[in-house]
């Protein structure tokens, strides 16, 4: 299933992605089953969709070395400004500033190991940490009517989500309900939430409850 391989003298890396024959459950699978997932209706002003087909990696280290490596592997530069979010690969992959020495990299499902290996090869002996956190968190997308999404978020987070303060290309870690989440805006029409697996059910039910007045629907065909 997974094989331990030594890539450099400094880090043990292994492919955490099981083969296609092993069924994978998304963090929200149980919630869909247990709490239900109302299908989007014509009058749904907000639609929620889990993007479970993504791998998440945390990159830690100096901005300059990581920027060079990311440029070589993906052809995009590392977000250098606080709260900056860079979307590439047709909106599927993204890189987000989390802290002065920490970035969240999201790539299509099953690519984490290849990406990590490529980054490590480019980085050589640089002092960095790359961790696969795919199993620990999930990406949830909200799309629909601009004002309805904003009102839903205003009920949930203590952060100004007005476009004046939250333009596309921004992402912040915020207190959401009684938990925390990464809130990001990849483009004009969508909001994304990165939520922890252990809080996924709580936040999913919170969103369903908060979105009730907007006839929130859940799109299961991701």
């Amino acid at each position: 299933m997974s094989e331990s391989v030594n890539h450099t003298d400094r880090a043990n890396t292994y492919d955490a992605c099981p083969g296609a024959d092993i069924a994978q459950e998304s963090p929200l699978a149980w919630s869909f089953f247990n709490s239900g997932a109302p299908a989007p209706r014509p009058n749904s002003r907000v639609v929620l969709r889990e993007l479970a087909d993504r791998d998440h990696l945390i990159l830690r280290g100096g901005a300059i070395v990581l920027d060079e490596a990311v440029r070589q592997v993906f052809g995009v530069s590392l977000p250098a400004r606080p709260q900056q979010l860079v979307v590439f690969n047709g909106g599927v992959s993204s890189l987000q500033w989390l802290s002065p020495d920490e970035w969240l990299l999201i790539v299509p499902f099953g690519q984490a190991y290849r990406v990590e290996t490529e980054l490590r090869q480019v980085l050589g002996g640089a002092s960095v940490a790359i961790s696969d956190v795919s199993a620990g968190q999930t990406l949830v997308e909200l799309h629909g009517e601009d004002l309805a999404m904003r009102e839903l978020l205003m009920k949930s987070v203590a952060y100004d989500v007005h476009p004046r303060n939250f333009p596309p290309g921004k992402g912040v870690t915020v207190v959401m309900a009684k938990s925390s989440a990464i809130l990001r805006r990849p483009d004009d029409s969508r909001w994304e939430l990165v939520i922890r697996r252990s809080f996924a059910d709580y936040l999913y039910r919170w969103l369903l409850d908060a979105g009730e007045e907007f006839e929130i629907g859940v799109d299961r065909n991701s």
């Binding site: 606080p82 709260q83 802290s99 002065p100 203590a158 952060y159 912040v172 915020v174 207190v175």
Partner: peptide, 11 residues
Amino acid sequence: PYCEEWREEEE
């Protein structure tokens, strides 16, 4: 000073 932003006290 790291986020270069005013943020909510509960954070």
